[in-house]
């Protein structure tokens, strides 16, 4: 790492990593959900870790948390970990009943 690297605030580094990871995931295609929501799969690894650590991203593991994220106007990006208790159909259903634009990144197994 260069001398300059040490001066970069950790928050900024994490944010940069998250943005890069999001862009990578977005290049790999998405599932279109109701009301303009989109679901991007992101392989388990540095990309999913970077997105989940991003403070501006809401991490949800249950449908109750997902519903809460849909109803919170300050939430824009939602991360769904691999072990989250929900199916894609659940996510679709909850997007359908809460018409709000959210971008989802769902962690998936490598090569899965």
């Amino acid at each position: 790492m260069t001398g300059q690297g040490h001066n970069v605030p950790p928050d900024l580094l994490e944010k940069t990593a998250s943005v890069a990871a999001q862009q990578n995931a977005m290049e790999r295609g998405c599932k279109f959900l109701p009301h303009g929501c989109r679901l991007f799969p992101v392989e388990q690894g540095w990309e999913s870790t970077a997105i989940s650590r991003d403070k501006s991203v809401s991490v949800v593991g249950t449908l109750l948390e997902l519903e809460e994220a849909m109803r919170d106007p300050d939430v824009k990006v939602v991360f769904i970990p691999l072990d989250a208790m929900m199916t894609d159909a659940d996510i679709e259903k909850i997007c359908q009943r809460n018409a709000a634009v959210r971008t989802f990144f769902r962690e998936v197994k490598k090569g899965g």
Binding site: H35, G36, R71, P73, Q96, R97, A99, A100
Partner: peptide, 21 residues
């Protein structure tokens, strides 16, 4: 249809628009 209805609501407020099936 429901997209357009909800979209008009979203244009007005940041609150989600509830869709009742």
């Amino acid at each position: 249809k429901s997209f357009m209805g909800a979209m008009q609501g979203r244009m007005r407020s940041k609150q989600p628009v509830e869709v009742f099936d």
